[in-house]
Lab assay of single mutants.
Amino acid sequence: DEDSERELEKLRKNNASKEEIKEVLKRLGFSEDEAKKLAEKAG
């Protein structure tokens, strides 16, 4: 959803580590696997 998109955008701009991105995604309700895949894509 839009909030998670914004959250990811912010992380990308701040050069967050894949680990940080994954944690945020998991907080947003993604499964471990989904979060890992998305973090890879974002990283």
Results as ranks from 00 to 15, higher is better:
Asp1Gly: 10
Asp1Tyr: 14
Asp1Asn: 12
Asp1Met: 13
Asp1Thr: 13
Glu2Phe: 13
Glu2Asn: 12
Glu2His: 12
Glu2Thr: 12
Asp3Glu: 11
Asp3Ala: 11
Asp3Pro: 08
Ser4Glu: 08
Ser4Lys: 13
Ser4His: 13
Ser4Ile: 15
Ser4Asn: 09
Ser4Asp: 09
Ser4Gly: 09
Ser4Val: 15
Glu5Gln: 12
Glu5Lys: 12
Glu5Asn: 09
Glu5His: 11
Glu5Tyr: 14
Glu5Arg: 12
Glu5Phe: 14
Glu5Pro: 05
Arg6Met: 10
Arg6Val: 10
Arg6Ala: 12
Arg6Thr: 11
Arg6Gly: 08
Arg6Asp: 10
Arg6Trp: 09
Arg6Glu: 09
Glu7Gly: 03
Glu7Lys: 05
Glu7Arg: 05
Glu7Trp: 15
Glu7Ile: 15
Glu7Gln: 09
Glu7Leu: 15
Glu7Val: 15
Glu7His: 07
Glu7Tyr: 11
Leu8Lys: 05
Leu8Glu: 05
Leu8Trp: 05
Leu8Ile: 09
Leu8Gln: 02
Glu9Asp: 09
Glu9Lys: 05
Glu9Leu: 00
Glu9Val: 03
Glu9Gly: 07
Lys10Arg: 14
Lys10Glu: 12
Lys10Pro: 01
Lys10His: 11
Lys10Ser: 09
Lys10Cys: 15
Lys10Ala: 10
Lys10Tyr: 04
Leu11Thr: 08
Leu11Asn: 05
Leu11Val: 08
Leu11Tyr: 01
Leu11Met: 07
Leu11Ala: 09
Leu11Pro: 05
Arg12Phe: 10
Arg12Leu: 15
Arg12Trp: 04
Arg12Gly: 09
Arg12Tyr: 09
Lys13Tyr: 04
Lys13Asp: 10
Lys13Ile: 07
Lys13Cys: 14
Lys13Thr: 10
Lys13His: 09
Lys13Val: 08
Lys13Ser: 12
Lys13Arg: 08
Lys13Glu: 12
Asn14Cys: 15
Asn14Leu: 08
Asn14Tyr: 01
Asn14Ser: 13
Asn14Gln: 11
Asn14Thr: 09
Asn14Asp: 08
Asn15Arg: 06
Asn15Gln: 10
Asn15Pro: 03
Ala16Gln: 05
Ala16Arg: 06
Ala16Asp: 03
Ala16Met: 10
Ser17Glu: 05
Ser17Asn: 06
Ser17Val: 03
Ser17Leu: 07
Ser17Phe: 05
Lys18Ala: 13
Lys18Ser: 12
Lys18Leu: 14
Lys18Thr: 12
Lys18Ile: 15
Lys18Phe: 15
Glu19Gly: 02
Glu19Cys: 08
Glu19Tyr: 00
Glu19Ala: 08
Glu19Ser: 07
Glu19His: 06
Glu20Gly: 04
Glu20Ala: 09
Glu20Asn: 04
Glu20Thr: 08
Glu20Pro: 00
Glu20Trp: 07
Glu20Arg: 07
Glu20Val: 08
Ile21Phe: 07
Ile21Gln: 01
Ile21Met: 08
Ile21Tyr: 07
Ile21Trp: 12
Ile21Leu: 07
Ile21Glu: 02
Ile21Ser: 01
Ile21Pro: 02
Lys22Gly: 00
Lys22Ser: 03
Lys22Asp: 11
Lys22Trp: 09
Lys22Val: 15
Lys22Glu: 15
Glu23Thr: 01
Glu23Gln: 03
Glu23Lys: 03
Glu23Ala: 04
Glu23Ile: 02
Glu23Trp: 00
Glu23Phe: 00
Val24His: 14
Val24Cys: 14
Val24Asn: 08
Val24Ala: 15
Val24Tyr: 11
Val24Trp: 06
Leu25Gln: 01
Leu25Asp: 06
Leu25Tyr: 01
Lys26Val: 14
Lys26Thr: 11
Lys26Arg: 10
Lys26Met: 13
Lys26Trp: 00
Lys26Ala: 10
Lys26Phe: 00
Lys26Tyr: 00
Lys26Gln: 14
Arg27Ala: 12
Arg27Tyr: 01
Arg27Phe: 01
Arg27Gln: 12
Arg27Asn: 11
Arg27Met: 07
Arg27Val: 04
Arg27Trp: 01
Arg27Pro: 04
Arg27Ile: 07
Arg27Asp: 10
Arg27Glu: 10
Leu28Gly: 02
Leu28Lys: 01
Leu28Trp: 01
Leu28Ile: 03
Leu28Ala: 03
Leu28Met: 13
Leu28Gln: 02
Leu28Val: 01
Leu28His: 02
Leu28Asp: 04
Leu28Arg: 01
Gly29Lys: 00
Gly29Gln: 01
Gly29His: 00
Phe30Ile: 06
Phe30Gln: 02
Phe30Met: 08
Phe30Pro: 00
Phe30Leu: 08
Ser31Ile: 04
Ser31Asn: 07
Ser31Glu: 07
Ser31Gly: 06
Ser31Lys: 03
Ser31Ala: 07
Ser31Tyr: 04
Ser31His: 03
Ser31Cys: 06
Ser31Gln: 05
Glu32Phe: 00
Glu32Met: 00
Glu32Pro: 04
Glu32Ser: 01
Glu32Gly: 01
Glu32Tyr: 00
Asp33Gly: 05
Asp33Thr: 06
Asp33His: 06
Glu34Leu: 07
Glu34Gly: 03
Glu34Ile: 07
Glu34Trp: 04
Ala35Gln: 05
Ala35Asn: 02
Ala35Glu: 03
Lys36Asp: 15
Lys36Gly: 13
Lys36His: 12
Lys36Glu: 15
Lys36Ala: 14
Lys37Trp: 01
Lys37Arg: 12
Lys37Pro: 04
Lys37Phe: 03
Lys37Ala: 12
Lys37Gly: 08
Leu38Gln: 06
Leu38His: 06
Leu38Ser: 03
Leu38Pro: 03
Leu38Ile: 13
Ala39Tyr: 05
Ala39Thr: 08
Ala39Gly: 03
Ala39Lys: 02
Ala39Met: 13
Ala39Pro: 02
Ala39His: 02
Glu40Arg: 01
Glu40Asn: 04
Glu40Gly: 04
Glu40Ala: 04
Glu40Pro: 03
Glu40Ser: 05
Glu40Gln: 04
Lys41Gln: 13
Lys41Glu: 14
Lys41Leu: 13
Ala42Ile: 15
Ala42Lys: 07
Ala42Tyr: 15
Ala42Gly: 09
Ala42Met: 15
Gly43Ala: 13
Gly43Glu: 11
Gly43Leu: 13
Gly43His: 12
Gly43Asp: 10
Gly43Trp: 15
Gly43Thr: 14
